[in-house]
Structure formats: structure tokens, C-alpha cells
Computed example of a mutant assay.
Amino acid sequence: MTNFREIAWQGLWKNNPGLVQLLGLCPLLAVTATITNALGLGLATLLVLIGSNVLVSLVRDFVPKEIRIPVFVMIIAALVTAVQLLINAYAYGLYLSLGIFLPLIVTNCVIIGRAEAFASRNSLISSAFDGLMMGLGFTSVLVVLGTVRELLGQGTLFYGAEQLLGPWAESLTIQVWQVDTPFLLAMLPPGAFIAMGLLIALKNVIDRKLAERQPKIETATVTRARITKVN
């Protein structure tokens, strides 16, 4: 039986592609200057991840092992092209902002890695759920990084939201504080590296705290079980 809880835990936290596997760092660091760009790329990657996992799971029994990687890449490339055309048609401003990093989703190690490591060995539903969780984990890192960089860099949140959601979303932009001159360190790649390092450090601290609490929880559980048995 598929353990969906474990798949979700792996994708969202324990084996997060951005914070643990450190995959897809090039687009992750390059386009997260604003929440809008981060969310746009994250959703595009999420769609491709789910689609590629589903298709790879469907054809896994029909593809010879010798050519499985080229076949997987062709599937991913077709999905990326479709997503790219959709963004070009319905969110042209976002398409221009993301630039070359949209077609580069084809070479994103997160997608190829999940197709090879999970989708090619598991059922359709499990593969789709794995793609969803890994995509959400990757998107969450993009959005958190974009939030930190946009807030520190220009004092706003959801700047340029109309590029993703349409003209009505201009009202979503929040000016948290007034910035006369943008903080370039936060907006440029060096700031992205620093913020990413801090996020990884924060995750490690939380994991350490959880590991320290686990023996205490197990001891308390055993004690309660013994008391119940005696009674």
C-alpha cells in the first residue's frame, strides 16, 4: 500500500528538492527577486512535474531500459513546451520576466530525478502525488525566497502580480515600507545565495530540535503503554 503521508513528508520537508537535494538551484536563485516570478516559475515546474510523473508511470512498462532517459527527456520537453506556450499566451509579462528559465525547466534535475527515481517504478496515482508534493516543496522554497528578497530589496510584496494574474491584480501589491533606493544585495544573485544559505540553516536547526524531542516522545509513549498494561 502506498504511504501518501510519507510521500508528502518527503516532498514538502524531509527530502525537499530545494533545501535538501539542492536541485534546480539555477532558476531558484535567478528568478526569485519577486514573489510573482517565484510563484510563476514554481507553478510551471509543478505542472511539468505532475505531468511528467504521470506520463512516465504510464509508459514505464513499454520503454526499454537502454533508452529510458532520452524518452523521459522527450516527455518533459513536450510538457515544458506546452506550459511555455500557455504562459506566453495568457501571461506574457511573466513570460518575459522568466525568460530563458522557462525552457530550461527541461533540464531541471528535480523533474528528471523524480521521473527516474520514482515515477518509473511506481503506480500512476503514487507518481502523480509524488509530483504534486515535490512540486509544492520546490514552489514553497521559491516563494519564501522571493518574499524575503522582494521585501528586503524594495519593501514590497506581490509586486508585478498583474503579470501572473491579470490587470485586476495590480491592487494586490503591498508597500510594506518606502524604499528610496533598492537594496541591490537582496535583489542580485549574491543576496539569493545568502538567503538560501540562511533557509538551509534554519531547516537544519528545526530538524535538530525535532530529533532531540523524538526520544522524549518515544519514552513517554512507552511509559504510558506500561502503565496501561499494569492497570
Rank of each mutant, 00 (worst) to 15 (best):
T173G: 13
F158S: 01
G166K: 05
L157N: 06
T181L: 01
E170G: 00
T181S: 03
G166I: 08
A169L: 04
L172A: 13
F183M: 11
T181C: 00
Q178L: 10
W177F: 15
G166Q: 05
W177K: 13
F193S: 01
A195H: 00
L184T: 01
F183L: 11
L152Q: 10
V176E: 06
E170S: 08
V179S: 06
T173K: 15
W177D: 02
A169H: 09
E170L: 10
L172N: 04
G160N: 12
G160W: 13
E170F: 05
I174F: 07
W168Q: 14
P167D: 12
A195G: 01
G191A: 05
T181V: 13
M187V: 01
A169M: 02
L184R: 12
F183Q: 12
L185K: 06
P182S: 10
L188D: 11
G166V: 08
L184V: 02
I194W: 12
Q175I: 06
G153Q: 09
V176C: 02
E170W: 02
W168Y: 12
V179G: 08
G166D: 04
I174C: 04
L188C: 05
A192K: 00
A192P: 01
Q175V: 11
V176F: 07
E170R: 14
L185T: 13
P189E: 00
W177N: 13
M187S: 09
Q175C: 01
E162L: 05
A192R: 01
F183R: 12
L157T: 07
Q154D: 12
M187Q: 12
T181A: 05
P189C: 04
A186P: 03
L184D: 08
F193V: 14
L188R: 12
D180V: 02
P189F: 00
G155D: 09
D180H: 12
L188G: 05
I194E: 01
L157Y: 12
A195W: 00
L152Y: 07
L172W: 15
M196E: 01
F158P: 03
M187H: 02
L172F: 11
G160H: 09
A169I: 07
F183D: 04
W177V: 13
Q163V: 02
L164C: 09
L172E: 04
V176H: 08
Q163G: 08
T173Q: 15
L157F: 15
A186T: 03
A169Q: 04
L165C: 13
S171W: 04
L188E: 14
A192C: 00
T156N: 13
E170H: 14
M187E: 10
T173C: 15
L164Q: 06
L172T: 03
D180Y: 06
G166Y: 09
L157Q: 08
G166A: 04
L172R: 03
